[in-house]
Design a protein around this nucleic acid. Structure first.
Lengths: 245, 245
DNA sequence: TTCTCGTAGACCGCCTACAGCATACAGTTG
DNA sequence: CAACTGTATGCTGTAGGCGGTCTACGAGAA
């Protein structure tokens, strides 16, 4: 994983707005966190990451700040960065907030629904079902995210869409394996949801979305004990300060 | 405004965890933005700010990243940082999201209300009313924020509280002068709200909060034309790239 | 006059270097 | 054997500097 490799991720040899290194680093580190190569609670030494990615500490620092802003890592001044270690309590709260934001989005999407927008949603539903039929879990999860993002965008409230997107990304960290369990159910709920949006039935859309996200939550809670998130062992080189408060 | 001045803002001569310069810079820049010394749309040259605050460019860069994460400035790769220029559309959306988050917080706060927590809220109401009686608008606004923060914390959902806090801070940028208009009304609504929370009446608390935030919104909308936010004139040294997508 | 092109200046993104603090460990003392 | 202290090492936070790019501006051509 060399520097050139990182910098050229944009494909085009010359881009009008060159993608700053920090964004490539951001993506790379997030990938490492989501795939579990960097475990929750683990201390992230800047020099180490710099060596690993073949860049200097500077872009690493900036990427860590960005990651901190989205809640992926915790920054403890003077102690460095640590991969955020989600607690079960926090996961519950995130899921609750997600339900709140997505429900409102669905309501607004129904209020402002357009034939064009509905058609986009239906297309995503088709692709999602196809992925489930093909047992392609990863694609199914990806399209699921796309669908939810499309609904929040259809709501017309960009601020709401941004927050929902943020929270959803965090949630996905916890419950990706859930999709394996309830793939088909999830997509039939999606179809109903889109129908409600197409009919501009705000209350029904909101209600379906609320139930939908709560189903997802329940599935997550069920299998939480089955496959708990693995954390880094406590003495991970550098300890985080007690009661950071 | 020298470096020593910035670094020693923590008051105590020796702090266990030395506050990194970037956080002091963050506060300083945010203050400059909120007070209008840095106008919306204005280009923020790193060297200039570094000279102004008496630090090197590094902490400035990191502070700008943090500010970007909270939506106060926009970072355009290769073009630098610009003070975020809020549109009326965005303000409306922020206010709508605030209503959503605060309403849910009030509902949860009523559900989880404790005598101890309610007492804290009442104390804040008393102080707030006192500030209004003394015509101390700044203090009134500050305590208003404290009260809302206390309610979101009482909800027991930290994720929700954090988001609500973030959105509220953004909102306050737009409507601080609103408080001047409807100070007393606002605090009588607060009192009702706390009563509902004390009575553990979820629906009533939610409804009061919804109306309360919408009143605030209406007041803001009314005086928006009266005192529009002043922006920096277009040619502010460096232009931001056209249509960043 | 208006458009194009070339040049100069300014600024950003990144790298390297250094000072200071935090942690770990070994030696010492009770 | 346990607790404490001094020292060494690693890491963070900040400074300063370099190369490349973008903007602004003036000269020349249509």
């Amino acid at each position: 994983m060399l520097r050139t490799e990182l910098a050229n991720q944009g494909a085009a040899p010359k881009i009008a707005r060159p993608v700053p290194l920090r964004e490539s680093v951001f993506e790379a580190l997030l990938e490492l966190i989501l795939t579990g190569h960097l475990k929750p609670g683990q201390h992230l030494a800047e020099s180490e990451l710099a060596g690993l990615l073949g860049v200097s500490r500077q872009p690493i620092r900036e990427a860590l700040q960005l990651l901190s802003g989205e809640g992926w890592v915790d920054l403890h001044p003077g102690h460095g960065a640590f991969v955020h270690a989600p607690t079960v309590e926090e996961a519950d709260q995130l899921l609750a907030v997600r339900t709140l934001l997505e429900t409102e989005s669905a309501k607004l999407a129904a209020r402002h629904s357009t034939p064009d927008g509905v058609q986009r949603l239906r297309a995503l539903c088709v692709r999602g079902l196809a992925a489930v039929d093909a047992d392609d879990v990863d694609t199914s999860v990806a399209i699921n995210s796309e669908l939810h993002a499309a609904i929040t965008e259809l709501s017309g409230n960009k601020v709401l869409a941004e927050l929902a997107s943020l929270v959803s990304r965090r949630v996905r960290w916890y419950h990706t394996p859930v999709a394996r369990k309830r793939g088909r159910d999830s997509w039939s709920e999606h179809a109903e949801l889109v129908d409600a949006i197409a009919a501009a039935d705000e209350d029904r859309a909101a209600e379906i979305m609320r139930k939908h996200t709560e189903h997802t939550r329940d599935s997550y809670l069920e299998q939480r004990e089955a496959e708990p998130i693995e954390s880094a062992p406590e003495p991970t080189r550098r300890r985080r300060p007690r009661s950071p408060k």
